[in-house]
Design a protein around this nucleic acid. Structure first.
Length: 181
DNA sequence: GCCAACGTTGGC
DNA sequence: GCCAACGTTGGC
């Protein structure tokens, strides 16, 4: 079933990455990339559901202030992640064979940066986003769906000044601490 | 660097 | 098929 890119069935996603290994800036330079290395069945299955034209958030994990920083677009649907077959790859999986490569990836293209990063702290503080796997403690899902409502809410947040969080004394620092005006 | 929360593995 | 041990993720 081939649907046009603007079809109402378009879905939204979120991709996690550690900026040290592959950050949004890398994607900006590369313009697009194959999202290799997903080794979790749930995450893989979400990639199987992705269609060309779907949009996703790019999330920076494992840093001091984890945050959603930009938007990507799915430009190629799921196909075999051949890094699983390569013994020299860090993503090598000895169970994978050419016939059954097990793991899949999609290609995503750089779309645009958000007006400003939206931090995990902010996402957690926004009650309507409580259902996101991302904000649920302990959830490590590296590829996950985002509902249209959640998508809009986060875009909206990125278009406004961040609220000040004073959950800990050391938190009133940096740009995030400036009052909205 | 710590450690909680997961997913995976393997003994039984 | 249960579940303890283990490795990994990722926020803090």
């Amino acid at each position: 079933m081939n649907l046009p890119a603007h079809c109402p069935q378009m879905r939204y996603w979120l991709f996690k990455s550690e900026p040290e290994s592959y950050g949004f800036e890398h994607l900006h330079d590369d313009r697009q990339t194959a999202w290799s290395g997903v080794r979790n069945f749930q995450a893989r299955n979400f990639m199987l559901e992705m269609r060309i034209g779907d949009e996703g958030f790019f999330y920076h994990s494992n840093i001091k202030d984890p945050a959603i920083v930009g938007i990507v677009r799915v430009v190629r649907e799921a196909h075999a992640d051949l890094t699983a077959l390569d013994p020299k790859s860090t993503y090598y999986d000895p169970r994978a064979t050419p016939d059954k490569p097990i793991w899949q990836l999609v290609d995503v293209a750089y779309e645009r940066a958000l007006p400003r990063p939206v931090t995990l702290t902010e996402l957690r503080a926004h009650a309507p986003l409580a259902g996101m796997p991302l904000v649920q403690r302990g959830t490590r899902l590296s590829v996950q769906p985002v509902s249209p409502t959640q998508w809009k809410a986060i875009l909206h947040m990125s278009e406004r000044s961040p609220k000040v969080f004073r959950s800990s004394p050391g938190n009133a620092r940096g740009a995030g601490a400036r009052p909205a005006r």
